[in-house]
Amino acid sequence: MLTSSDANVGKVLITGVVGPLGRLLAERLSLTMDVCGVDTRRWKGSHPDIRLHRVDLRKRQFEDLLRTERPDAVVHMGFVRHFDRGDRVRHDVNVRGTKQLLDHCVKYGVRKVVVFSSSAVYGAFPENPYGMDEDCPISASRSYPEIRDQVEVDALASAFLWQHQEIETVVLRPVNALGPEMGSMMSSYLKLPGVPTVMGFDPVVQFIGQADLLDALEIAVAQPLSGVFNVVGAGQVPIHTAIQAIGARAWPIPGPLFNAVCRQLFALKLWHYPSGAVDYLRYPVCLSGSRFEEATGFRPKVSLSEMFDSIRHPAR
């Protein structure tokens, strides 16, 4: 944990604060900073030190809020990452929402912007090498068009980084977060009662512990830092090993059947994962986190076994 003397940030605004990671980050940052949060969702039993504003990022009220709160830093994690509300809403909230937020940050003198992207933007492809760095193209839309908005957000933020060098911009691309509260795609996938996998494939998957991800976010907010960074945790194992380690059972399904079933169930809204997501169960997306570690001194502390224990299925 950083002391407040390291921080040049007095007030921070977090979008999407009611999400599991947003809450934890708000609570963590509220120890050293003045924290306000934005979300359209309700926060049950909200924290006394954190002011929650229930506004939509795309609305006028959000700009008013930046004008009145005047935060030094903005952490942007207010994205729609599920597919339940359809492509259009998702794209509008994520892409237009981000664009407007970045414009407001320029207008109201925000000094630090942290955008929470994802390792998924690189895309899962058979030709992926291990240890991909931040200069690898972000090509997820090629095989997984459902998350093209997420790729666009990352590209928008990276372009903003160069256009507005007076603002410290940090784009974080963390690997799959694991922890009791984490709702990441991989985390909720592993928590399924039976875990479907692609028969004959067993890609190496990278994980980061909840506590390490919070550390990385805090570092990104508090330390003087600009750039695009992969954030990698303590390790990686093949997906079947992870499933076994959390005490779940894998259900291998032949690939073409998996894709077809996925497509049908997704179209019927009976299943949360589009067929493009299946490629992440076939091919590795393994990143190098050395740029972030060298720039900030960040070192992941939560070991693989600690991560797996934290989401262990109850013994059958």
């Binding site: 291990y130 190496v204 390790g235 990686q236 194992v237 090993t241 590795p284 393994c286 070991s303 693989l304």
Partner: peptide, 10 residues
């Protein structure tokens, strides 16, 4: 090797 018997590339 890591604690599960794999190296970083599987």
């Amino acid at each position: 090797l890591n604690e599960y018997g794999f190296d970083d590339q599987g």
